[in-house]
Amino acid sequence: MPTYSLNTPLTDADIEKLRAGDMVLLNGIIYSGRDAAHKKLSDLLDQGKPLPFDLKGASIYYVGPSPAPPGRPIGSAGPTTSYRMDAYAPRLYSLGLKASIGKGKRADAVKQAMRDFKGVYFGATGGAGALLSKCITASKVIAFDELGPEAVREMTVKDFPLLVINDAFGGELYAKPNLEE
């Protein structure tokens, strides 16, 4: 399995070399955002207002971390299920988002947006939030503090372990269930 070490912000060239099943160690700044934050980002776009971070080359991590205990930058921080952000994701990819990070299946419209705008969808291991938090070296809330666990955070990651679930060429890693019909 090819393994790539990539730095954010991601470029079209980074995305073009990735195929479903590849492993990626991600480094740099990523942004947390899940259900309520996506609604707010969408509202800002509707109103023509600037977003709290630059979408160009950005990676959004679908995560709502547990509170940081004293002496740690963050609490447990594994991925949440991604399909709930499907309603918002195509628009974000069209505006420069390069990667979303979560777990679980994506809608066809999201996969199409990744093909159209050169994006990828990474999977992180669900239910390994303590382990994944070791790769997050810094975290600060940059928007929507009132959302608590759902606030948008700027996170610095080091060798954050990800699998390419959907690539920019229509490839998908998830196994199709063996259903007898």
């Binding site: 709502g64 547990s66 740690r72 669900g126 070791k134």
Partner: peptide, 19 residues
């Protein structure tokens, strides 16, 4: 990874899962 996560959570008292 899940076994490593369980060990780490027990040692650090970080939740096994953020949810």
């Amino acid at each position: 990874q899940l076994l490593e996560n369980a060990d780490l959570a027990f040692e650090t008292k970080l939740p096994l899962c953020q949810d």
